[in-house]
Deep mutational scan, measured.
Amino acid sequence: QLRFETNGEEQAKKVLEEAKKHNLEAHVTIENGKWVVHVK
Rank of each mutant, 00 (worst) to 15 (best):
Q1Y: 15
Q1N: 14
Q1P: 09
Q1E: 15
Q1S: 14
L2V: 13
L2F: 05
L2P: 04
L2M: 12
L2N: 09
L2Q: 12
L2I: 15
L2T: 13
L2S: 10
R3E: 08
R3G: 07
R3Q: 07
R3S: 09
R3W: 07
R3V: 13
F4N: 04
F4S: 05
F4M: 06
F4H: 06
F4W: 09
F4E: 04
E5A: 04
E5D: 05
E5P: 06
E5R: 00
E5Q: 06
E5V: 14
T6Y: 12
T6I: 07
T6F: 15
T6G: 03
T6K: 01
T6W: 01
N7L: 13
N7M: 13
N7Y: 12
N7Q: 13
G8A: 08
G8C: 15
G8H: 11
G8W: 09
E9S: 06
E9N: 03
E9H: 05
E9K: 05
E10Y: 06
E10F: 05
E10K: 08
E10I: 09
E10W: 08
Q11I: 07
Q11W: 07
Q11A: 14
Q11D: 14
Q11R: 03
Q11G: 10
A12T: 05
A12Q: 01
A12L: 07
A12H: 01
A12K: 02
A12R: 01
A12N: 00
K13G: 07
K13Q: 14
K13H: 12
K13P: 01
K13R: 14
K13S: 10
K13T: 10
K13D: 06
K13I: 13
K14Q: 12
K14W: 07
K14E: 10
K14Y: 05
K14T: 08
K14R: 14
K14M: 11
K14L: 12
V15S: 02
V15T: 03
V15Q: 04
V15P: 00
V15G: 02
V15E: 03
V15H: 05
L16R: 02
L16F: 10
L16N: 01
L16I: 12
L16C: 15
L16Q: 06
L16D: 02
E17K: 11
E17T: 10
E17F: 05
E17A: 14
E17L: 12
E17R: 12
E18V: 13
E18R: 12
E18I: 15
A19V: 11
A19K: 03
A19G: 01
A19W: 07
K20P: 02
K20D: 05
K20Y: 11
K20F: 13
K21F: 10
K21R: 13
K21T: 06
K21I: 08
K21P: 00
K21V: 07
K21S: 11
H22L: 12
H22Q: 11
H22I: 07
H22M: 11
H22G: 06
H22D: 04
N23F: 11
N23C: 15
N23G: 15
L24H: 08
L24V: 07
L24Y: 11
L24R: 09
L24P: 04
E25F: 05
E25Q: 12
E25M: 09
E25G: 05
A26P: 01
A26Y: 05
A26D: 02
A26S: 05
A26N: 02
A26M: 03
A26L: 03
H27Q: 09
H27V: 12
H27E: 10
H27K: 10
H27W: 15
H27P: 00
H27S: 12
H27M: 12
V28H: 01
V28T: 05
V28R: 01
V28S: 03
V28F: 04
V28P: 01
V28N: 00
V28M: 12
V28Y: 04
V28D: 00
V28G: 02
T29Y: 06
T29K: 06
T29E: 10
T29A: 07
T29G: 04
I30P: 01
I30G: 03
I30N: 10
I30R: 09
I30Y: 13
I30Q: 11
E31D: 06
E31R: 03
E31V: 07
E31I: 09
E31K: 03
E31M: 06
E31T: 04
N32T: 01
N32E: 11
N32I: 00
N32F: 03
G33E: 05
G33F: 00
G33Q: 01
G33R: 00
G33N: 06
G33D: 10
G33V: 00
G33A: 01
G33W: 00
G33L: 01
G33H: 03
K34T: 06
K34I: 14
K34M: 11
K34H: 11
K34N: 10
K34E: 05
K34S: 07
K34R: 11
W35T: 06
W35Q: 03
W35A: 04
V36G: 01
V36S: 00
V36Q: 03
V37H: 00
V37Y: 00
H38W: 11
H38V: 15
H38T: 15
H38M: 12
H38D: 05
H38C: 12
H38I: 15
H38Y: 15
H38L: 12
H38P: 00
V39N: 00
V39P: 00
V39F: 05
V39M: 05
V39Q: 00
V39K: 00
V39H: 00
V39A: 02
V39G: 01
V39S: 01
K40G: 13
K40W: 08
K40Q: 14
K40A: 12
K40T: 15
K40R: 11
K40I: 14
K40S: 14
